[in-house]
C-alpha cells in the first residue's frame, strides 16, 4: 500500500477539471500507453492568462492526482507564472509523493511544458543532439538532466524514481550514471572525486591485488576478482581460504570491510565458486 497523502487521495477520488477543451489554444502531451502512463492537458489561453484547463490521464492514483492538482494550479494564472511551475511544485501541492512516484509529477510538468512550447511555437521536435538514453521508457538525455537539475538528484535510483529511466531492462543504467557523473563532475569540487565505471573497476582491482591478496597470501590463501556489477563485487577465494570454515568471515569482515572503507559503503562482496 502506498502512503498517499490526504491531498493525493482527494484528487484521485474526485479529480478536478477532467475532460477536453475542443477549442483549446494549446494541448500538451506526455508519456505513452506502452509505458503505463500517458497524459493530455488542454489549455484555454486569453490575454496571456490560462483561463481554463482540463486533463485526461491514463495512469495510477498519483498520476491522476498530479494532473488534477496541476490544472488547479494554473487556472487563472498569467503565463509568466505558469512557466515557472516545476514538478516539485506539483508534488509539494499534493503534500508530497512517495519517492517511487515522483515521475508522476515529472510527467505532469512535461505535459505542461509541451503545451507551452507548442503555444509559443517553439521547436518541439526532438533535437538531434537530444540523445535517447532509455529506450524502454523513451527518456532523453535532456529530460534526465532537467530532472537532475530541478530536483537535485544525486543517485541513479533517484533518477529512476523521477523519470522511470533505468527501471526496466536496465541497459541504460551506465549511461544515466555517466550523465550524473558528468553533471556533478563539472560542478562538484575535486575534493570528492567521482569515479567513472572504468576508474572504479581499476581501483577495486588495485585494492584487491595490493591490499587484500597480499594479506591472504601470508596465510597461504589467495583471491581472484571475477566480476563487478554495480556495487556487487564477485570474487573467488583460493588456496587455504576456500577450504577454510571461516571463509564467510574472511569475505565479510576483511574483504568487504576493506573495500567499503577504501571505496564505497555500498559495496557487497559475493563469493563465487568455479
Amino acid at each position: 500500500m502506498w502512503d498517499y497523502t490526504k491531498e493525493v487521495m482527494e484528487h484521485y477520488r474526485n479529480p478536478k477539471n477532467v475532460g477536453k477543451i475542443d477549442d483549446a489554444e494549446a494541448i500538451g502531451e506526455a508519456g505513452s500507453l506502452v509505458c503505463g502512463d500517458a497524459l493530455k492537458i488542454y489549455l484555454k489561453i486569453k490575454d496571456n492568462m490560462v483561463v481554463d484547463a482540463k486533463f485526461q490521464t491514463f495512469g495510477c492514483g498519483s498520476a491522476v492526482a498530479s494532473s488534477s492538482v496541476l490544472t488547479e494550479m494554473i487556472i487563472g494564472k498569467p503565463l509568466d507564472e505558469v512557466k515557472k511551475i516545476t514538478n516539485k511544485d506539483i508534488a509539494d501541492r499534493l503534500g508530497g509523493l512517495p519517492p517511487e512516484k515522483m515521475h508522476c509529477s515529472v510527467m505532469g510538468h512535461e505535459a505542461l511544458e509541451n503545451a507551452l512550447s507548442k503555444y509559443f511555437k517553439e521547436d518541439v521536435a526532438p533535437h538531434e543532439k537530444d540523445k535517447m538514453v532509455c529506450t524502454c521508457f523513451s527518456v532523453t538525455e535532456k529530460q534526465i538532466l532537467n530532472a537532475i537539475k530541478d530536483n537535485n538528484l544525486k543517485t541513479l535510483e533517484e533518477v529512476t524514481n523521477y523519470t522511470k529511466a533505468g527501471g526496466a531492462c536496465g541497459n541504460c543504467k551506465a549511461d544515466i550514471q555517466a550523465i550524473l557523473d558528468k553533471y556533478y563532475g563539472s560542478e562538484i569540487s575535486k575534493a570528492k572525486p567521482i569515479l567513472t565505471k572504468t576508474q572504479r573497476i581499476i581501483k577495486i582491482n588495485d585494492i584487491i591485488e595490493n591490499q587484500i591478496a597480499t594479506e591472504l597470501r601470508k596465510d597461504g590463501g589467495d583471491i581472484d576478482l571475477i566480476d563487478i556489477d554495480d556495487n556487487k563485487v564477485y570474487v573467488e577465494l583460493k588456496g587455504c581460504c576456500s577450504k577454510c570454515k571461516n571463509s564467510t568471515m574472511t569475505l565479510k569482515n576483511f574483504v568487504e570491510a576493506t573495500l567499503r572503507e577504501m571505496l564505497d559503503e555500498k559495496i557487497e562482496v559475493i563469493e563465487v565458486e568455479k
Partner: peptide, 23 residues
C-alpha cells in the same frame, strides 16, 4: 485504464484485489 487506479477505487468499496500493473 491503469490498474492501480482501479484498485484504489475498489478499495474505497472495501474490495481487495491485485494488479499486474507496474505502479
Amino acid at each position: 485504464i491503469e490498474g492501480e487506479l482501479i484498485l484504489l477505487h475498489l478499495s474505497d468499496f472495501g474490495i481487495c484485489a491485485s494488479s499486474g500493473s507496474a505502479c
